[in-house]
Amino acid sequence: MKRYLSLLLLLCLAMPLVHAQQKLTPQDKQSLLKQQDSLRLLGDEMLRGKNDDARHNAMLAFIPRLVRALKTKNSFYFPFDSLETVAIKYPKDSTFRIFTWVDVTDNGFFSHHGTIQMRTADGSLKLFPLIDSSEYINNADTITSNRAWYGCLYYNIVQTHFFNQEYYTLCGWDGNNPRSQKKLLDVLTFKDGQPVFGAPMFSFEEDSVKRPTQNRFFLEYKKDANVTLNYYPDMDMIVYDHLISESNEPRKKFTYVPDLDYEAFKWKNGKWVHIDKIFHDKLQNGQAPAPMPLDMKEKDNTHIQSEEEVQAAQAAKAAASPQKSSKKKTPAKKP
């Protein structure tokens, strides 16, 4: 299934070092713009191609063209912002950037591909290919290298510092399979200049029921569910949905959906410490726990809301909606 790992690995390891100036020349920028156009077309085809063969062929062409483009002098400073099917994320210190993209089969299974490009003082190219080995990793909580990567599409990087060490917490999404998808938190560090994925950073020491510290954190849930897992600067926490089985079958992760409660991780003393509940809503006297069904399709992952806030928003929307006409006119009921 990982049909492209040898190609990407060989291309990255065989690359000569390219010494560069401190910024892109106009000629190199123009060259990269042209190469970006070709990459954009291939990227669209490898995601939306009509079948597995079409996407496979686009992938085979995309990888060497991307490496060729990155060999341009000081390519680190070119954003590649037209590559809509490739996620490119930088940490706060911009010491590297990560390219990730997905490979989906006709039967709905996902694998992932990527590379880390380091920022170098002389503008030379330094890449670490990311080889998706999630299919073969028996223990998902293990610490791995870039050649045994738990593949996903990264959508955020949270940088923290503790005892002269930089920690890069990666928020990722995995399309997984036809029945479920996943979101995960991973930790990237660099040891002797080499990337290391996973670290004992996710602590449950403050929970009433203690759990072992984890190297990596996962949420698996129903395919069409809308689930939050991200860092929110205004709260200074990584917040995620509390999930429950909608069919009361907790062993079946593909039945898990949010229940509008939230958990979180807070950075404390070099670890992400688990917070079991971030909202503690109190009902007014006589108030029902749920005056109307909560519409999970309208859930906004960019703004964390308590159940009370969601109910208020839905009530306001219902009040603003025009009343449906009927054959028998009756006074409109108050919302």
Rank of each mutant, 00 (worst) to 15 (best):
D93Y: 01
M118I: 07
G151V: 13
I157H: 09
V67I: 15
P91C: 08
D93E: 00
T160A: 12
P129S: 02
T160D: 10
D122K: 00
K126D: 03
I63T: 10
F162T: 14
G114P: 03
K89E: 14
H112K: 02
I143T: 02
L125D: 11
N74Y: 09
Y155P: 04
Y155R: 02
I116Y: 11
F96M: 05
V158A: 07
I137Y: 10
G108Y: 10
T115S: 04
S111G: 11
S133I: 03
Q159P: 10
L60P: 00
Q117A: 09
P129D: 10
V67L: 08
F99I: 03
Y154T: 06
Y90M: 12
L127M: 10
F80I: 07
I143S: 10
R68D: 11
A69I: 06
K126L: 13
M59L: 08
Y77Q: 15
A140S: 13
R147H: 08
F96T: 05
S124M: 03
G108L: 01
N107R: 11
A87W: 06
K126V: 12
A61G: 05
N146I: 06
V158W: 11
V102H: 07
T160P: 02
I143M: 14
G114F: 13
I63Y: 07
S134C: 09
H161P: 00
Y154G: 00
F110G: 05
F110Y: 15
I63M: 13
L66Y: 09
E135F: 08
I131V: 14
F78C: 01
D141L: 12
S94V: 03
F128K: 08
I98T: 11
N138I: 14
S94L: 04
F76I: 14
M59G: 00
P79G: 09
D93M: 04
P79T: 08
D132W: 06
F80P: 01
K126E: 10
N138A: 05
D106P: 05
Y136A: 13
S75I: 02
Q159M: 15
L130N: 13
L153N: 06
V86I: 07
L66A: 09
H113P: 03
V102P: 01
P79N: 12
A87C: 12
M118E: 08
K71G: 13
E84G: 06
R68H: 13
P129E: 00
T120V: 01
V104L: 02
G123D: 00
K71M: 15
L66G: 00
S82M: 04
W149T: 04
W101D: 01
H112P: 02
